[in-house]
Design a protein around this nucleic acid. Structure first.
Lengths: 115, 115
DNA sequence: TCGATAGTCAAGTGTGCGCTTAAGTGTTTT
DNA sequence: AAAACACTTAAGCGCACACTTGACTATCGA
């Protein structure tokens, strides 16, 4: 099940341009942390912190091989966000759902479905 | 055309839980700022600032009617984000796209289409 | 074994942002 | 006209977060 907690973590993780750049790099192939750091004018420690945020949100996964940490995109890691987005992008369809429910349950109480 | 500048603004706008709640409320129907503020334990001024961020990112639009500011979801306002997301969720397909382009245009220049 | 490499950990700094209060503007009501 | 209403604007506060430095650990190559 997809919680809005996941969506919050995903949105926060992807709201940073450095982290998005890392995601785009990993979209081409897995890579060690050190190589991910190279394009940025930033310490390795800073990049490691970004990788932690991305991993905690489920966007990437990492695995230590010798002294190297290999990072890769986690398949389906952004699904929760994609689902949330699609639901909010087509709010009108939910109205139709409610209309259909109303038409088939005209004996129900006057509850309009609002929170 | 959809810029990553738009994506940045969208992600930053939606990364806040209060702003996401506003978006969900507007998904049901347009509403004046004052009504949007009611569910929150927060000053009206704070909500207005959130509305500004959402409007600047293109997620919502607003219009002043008398002394009331009516806010509504901007149709397609999240398209740039949805497009960005879908592209990053299926990075493998871009490889196939490039392979297809290579197979059908072997006489073209070496442009790989990145960025 | 020794040095270099790749990453890890902890503590500290600066800044952006979410929020507040308070005063001001324009609009509707009485 | 006066008062109530719905914002609007501006200034300021505090904390989360991006980033740094420096010390430390573990692995690899010579």
């Amino acid at each position: 099940m997809l919680k809005h907690q996941d969506v919050d973590a995903l949105l926060r993780a992807l709201a940073d341009p450095t982290r998005r750049a890392i995601v785009e790099r990993l979209g081409r192939s897995p890579a060690p942390a050190g190589e991910l750091a190279k394009p940025f004018d930033m310490s390795l420690a800073a990049i490691m912190q970004h990788l932690q945020v991305l991993e905690a949100s489920g966007v990437i996964a990492s695995e230590k091989v010798g002294r190297v940490r290999i990072c890769r995109l986690e398949p389906g890691g952004m699904d929760a966000l994609a689902l949330w987005l699609e639901e909010r992008r087509h709010p009108a369809e939910r109205k139709l759902d409610r209309l259909a429910a109303f038409l088939t349950e005209t004996d129900a109480t006057g509850d309009d479905g609002d929170d």
